[in-house]
Design a protein around this nucleic acid. Structure first.
Length: 418
RNA sequence: GUGGGUGUAGCUCAGGGGUUAGAGCACCGGAUUGUGGUUCCGGGGGCCGUGGGUUCAAAUCCCAUCACCCACCCCA
């Protein structure tokens, strides 16, 4: 029996849950006001769903990092490593393409990847996810980015850096990959091992290398943005124009690439300063064609995912975490055995509209007031033989120290006065 | 998968072969038998991560293992 959480998982303790409620309520407000509706897909799906979306075309490591298991019926199931596939499966399954377009959906919840842990990276981690489906134009791309930006701002994060790029249309990618192969093949042996492997499988991803020498070599080449086709270029310009019009600062990122084939055109990330090696708070992109590959009608879409742990990390660094929950309106202190039951009964009654706690054992006034103080109560109400005889509770306002005797029937009103 | 660091009380950490393992915070009690926060006094709490080894003797040294942290790698 190991009473220890599984590696890469962690408990959100009561002191931290207010932060998560703050996150959720900010999402509900910010995205809800833009007509984005919440969707809650299951946390596991038939494995094919993820194979279709992320697995088949992607690096082996992506496959390896999925939590996959067989259920008793012999079905292969996979814990979601990201939200998009499940959300789109639900979109297809429930015929949501018949809803007024675009369909805008958000989710918040856990996702799972069997990777090594470090600051801001867990095996059960959490994402805020947002998808906008049904519109091919740059306007929804800009809206998606703006929503993400506005959400982070609403949460209280300063110093955001929006990086906007494009992976082009499929034919642009083919052309660019061919260009990379041609340009890099002669110098192949100067590249790192990983990059050589990528050159073979998916040349664009060489640009992702953090190896210094790789970077030096890559720096001499044209970036994907330099070689976009006219359509993709116009699309990118459109997105950039909207962002400029809306006053959202961004940098053009010539070399943002994606490991997965289904991405096309818009790709973006948002970074924050000062949270260690994992500075990307969120990222997303356009994935026209993915819905179709999941068995739905051809449907353009764009989406993003925000890493909750990293955002909370950044919020903490910025001193923007919400304070603890408010304490009780009143804390009842029984000062003899009879008063214990009286306190419990009164608490139940007052709880119809007040936050009420009480001691479960007989307390003298000193201990009882200390209990009330530690619970963060506004008032303490004491009950002993004397109070019982008079049908009252001794009500003390803890901050001021003022106290008076209040008939039990008037306690609710008295507590609400301040 | 790789490298480095750290595992001692609920928490943060001291102690680096030799009595009965310590501090601060937290918790409980008392000073105060019907009045909190401050203060003072006292108390309960420990397989010193786990397993093996060296030694007369191991929290301390060695090996292994597990966990956590940081970074690399990777990142849908």
């Amino acid at each position: 029996m190991r009473s220890q959480a599984v590696k890469g998982t962690y408990d959100v303790l009561p002191d931290a849950t207010p932060t998560w409620r703050y996150l959720r309520s900010t999402i509900e407000r910010t995205l809800g006001r833009a007509g984005v509706r919440e969707i809650v897909p299951p946390i596991f799906e038939h494995s094919e769903i993820f194979d279709k979306s992320v697995g088949e075309s992607a690096d082996l490591v992506v496959q390896k990092e999925m939590y996959r298991f067989e259920d008793r019926g012999g079905r292969s199931l996979t814990l979601r490593p990201e939200f998009t596939a499940g959300v789109l499966r639900a979109y297809v399954e429930h015929g949501m393409h018949t809803l007024p377009s675009p369909v805008k959906l958000w989710s918040l919840g856990p996702a799972f990847r069997a990777e090594n842990v470090q600051r801001g990276r867990y095996r059960q981690f959490h994402q805020v996810n947002c998808e906008i489906l049904g519109s091919p134009g740059p306007l929804v791309d800009a809206e998606a980015i703006a929503l993400l930006h506005d959400l982070l701002v609403a949460l209280g994060l300063p110093d955001l850096r929006v990086a906007l790029g494009s992976v082009g249309d499929p034919e642009d990618r083919d052309a660019y990959n061919a260009y990379l192969r041609e340009a890099l093949e002669p110098r192949k042996h100067e590249l790192s091992e990983t990059s050589q492997e990528r050159l073979r499988l998916n040349p664009m991803r060489v640009l992702d290398s953090k190896n210094e020498q790789d970077q030096a070599i890559v720096a001499e080449l044209d970036a994907p943005l330099d070689r976009l086709g006219d359509a993709a270029r116009a699309h990118l310009d459109g997105v950039a124009q909207y962002l400029s019009d809306w006053g959202i600062a961004f940098d053009l990122a010539p070399s943002i690439v994606r490991g997965l084939d289904y991405y096309r055109r818009t790709a973006f990330e948002i970074h924050a300063e000062g949270i260690g090696a994992q500075s990307a708070l969120a990222g997303g992109g356009r994935y026209d064609g993915l819905v179709e590959s999941l068995g739905g009608p051809p449907t353009p879409g764009i989406g993003w995912a925000m890493g909750v742990e990293r955002v909370l990390d950044a919020l903490e660094g910025a001193g923007k975490l919400p304070g603890p929950d408010a304490g009780p309106n009143v804390f009842l202190v029984p000062m003899d055995e009879t008063a214990i039951d009286e306190a419990a009964r009164l608490a139940r009654d007052l709880r119809s509209d007040l936050h009420v706690q009480h001691a479960y054992v007989k307390r003298n006034p000193g201990k009882g007031l200390r209990d009330a103080d530690r619970a963060g109560a506004r008032y303490a109400a004491l009950r002993g033989e004397r109070e019982r005889a008079a049908g009252v509770w001794t009500l003390k306002h803890l901050a001021s120290g003022e106290q008076r005797e209040v008939p039990e029937s008037e306690l609710r009103t008295a507590v609400l006065e301040d």
